[in-house]
Write a protein that binds this DNA or RNA. Structure first.
Length: 422
RNA sequence: GUGGGUGUAGCUCAGUUGGUUAGAGCGCAGGAUUGUGGCUCCUGAGGCCGAGGGUUCGACCCCCUUUACUCACCCCA
């Protein structure tokens, strides 16, 4: 690395070939799957008014408190690079009155997110999420559809060892009761809690449940559990979902201590956890947020969504993907006249797919064959001075080493025939 | 924000208790009797040894500073 070499900003994650091919493979699988279930893509702004995130994610969350890329533009507006996707999708849902166009809206997005954190394995400052949101459907069937769809995605990508953790956080009727219960429980044990938990106890006591500090864990072992205080509707919603998952034979663990780092969730919350990702073990997470649309100024609209960490998904799926496809034939000219002859054929063959390679540098036959071999082509088409004189090209099968002669006027046709056979 | 580890070729890494031209494997380029790939062999290109300062006759090596990367805490996808 040279002294004055300009480099990427710390923690900004870039994807180069051949990794970028694998990314697109996975992204395509995601799109195909989601679109099969009636989701449509939303391409949204990366930059939002800071207020959007403070109001949606919650002012007391770590994301908003210390992890956002926030700055002022030239007109002194406070802007923030989006740290997650849901807030923007909800904003767009309200802004474009999508709820008035369709009763149910199923939307997905793919793209970069930004959080100012210390980078480590599976965690970057610019990272990528695949996410989806459903608006207007309150039924637990929706929760089940989405969770089962995610499980299908992992299955399609041969990702194994991913475990679904599930919980219900209740609704605006039953959660406050639980919050109060938990708060007084925590107050009694205040001295054994870490400073963060003590501080957040008032605003957001639920966070103490998934604190990783050992003494906090100890202290909350016997904490009241949310599933004990769910109201009837929430209880039925959750058990309805569980039954559907059972029937579909999807394994899951109910984890009463699973709360999420974002404040907007209600009822169902979940995480898909995987080993092999270092300390960052959540590959996908999400849940239901029935009040957020209204809180951001829209009509009361139930919603359910999730986000997948793309880099984390790739760590799990990356090396199990199909190998990259090779071009079919290497055109091998010897001399400029042969190059001129093969060039139009090359342009013709690649018109709709990667079929042929052609080197413009007049390299030796040996080195062109070597390159063709490395590229994994099935055939090479050799044209040198001798062939030019006879009006034929040598077609060499790289596996069998068989060589046949093709006359110039039938080259394109003959190659297309071979290509279709293969 | 807090700790630990590591910075030597495009990649993965050796290296000398401080001593002359800093090495290997992979990769890349060329070659091994005329125009035929993989295996093998040969050759070559490519490094101011992360940066700055200090100690020394002399520093890739020792000391200080700094920076980047990395892992973990925290938090999250």
């Amino acid at each position: 690395m040279k002294k004055n070499q300009i480099k990427t900003v710390k923690g900004f994650n870039e994807v180069l070939p051949p990794e970028s091919f694998r990314w697109r493979l996975v992204e395509d699988k995601f799109r195909d799957l989601l679109e099969g279930y009636g989701f449509a893509e939303l391409r949204l702004a990366l930059l939002e008014p800071t207020e959007l995130f403070a109001r949606s994610i919650g002012g007391e969350t770590d994301i908003v408190e210390k992890e956002m890329y926030t700055f002022s533009d030239r007109s002194d507006r406070s802007l923030t690079l989006r740290p997650e996707g849901t807030a923007s999708v909800v904003r767009a849902f309200n802004q474009y009155s999508l709820g008035k166009i369709n009763e149910i809206n199923k939307l997905y997005y793919v793209g970069p997110m930004f959080r100012y954190e210390r980078p480590q394995k599976g965690r970057y400052r610019q990272f990528h999420q695949l996410g989806a949101e459903v608006f207007g459907e309150e039924s637990f069937f929706q929760d089940a559809e989405t969770l089962l769809m995610l499980a299908q995605l992992f299955h399609t990508l041969s990702v194994e060892g991913v475990v679904l953790h599930l919980n219900s956080l209740g609704c605006e009727l039953c959660r406050p009761t639980f919050r109060d219960q938990l708060k007084s429980f925590l107050l009694e044990r205040q001295t054994s809690l870490c400073s963060d938990c003590q501080r957040r106890m008032q605003e957001n006591p639920l966070r103490a449940l998934d604190c990783k500090n050992p003494s906090c864990r100890e202290a909350v072992v016997d904490a009241p559990q949310i599933n004990q205080s769910l109201c009837d509707d929430c209880r039925q919603h959750f058990s309805g979902l569980c039954t559907l998952l059972d029937n579909a034979e999807l394994d899951y663990q109910v984890n009463p201590k699973l709360v999420r780092g974002l404040d907007y969730y209600t009822r169902t919350t979940f995480e898909f956890l995987a080993g092999g990702l270092g300390a960052q073990n959540a590959v996908a997470a999400g849940g239901r947020y029935d009040r957020l649309v209204a809180e951001l100024g829209g009509k009361m609209t139930p919603a359910f969504g999730f986000a997948i960490g793309f880099e984390r998904l790739m760590m799990l799926a990356g090396d199990k993907l199909a190998p990259l496809s090779s071009p079919f034939v290497a055109l091998v000219p010897l001399g400029e006249e042969a190059l001129r002859l093969l060039f139009p054929l090359y342009m013709e063959l690649n018109r709709s797919a990667k079929v042929a390679t052609l080197n413009f540098q007049q390299k030796s036959l040996k080195s062109q064959l070597k390159k063709a071999d490395r590229d994994g082509v099935k055939y090479t088409l050799i044209v040198g001075p001798d062939e030019l004189a006879q009006g034929v090209a040598i077609c060499r099968n790289m596996q069998t080493k068989e060589q046949t002669q093709l006359s110039f006027d039938k080259l394109g046709e003959a190659l297309r025939e071979l290509y279709h056979e293969y």
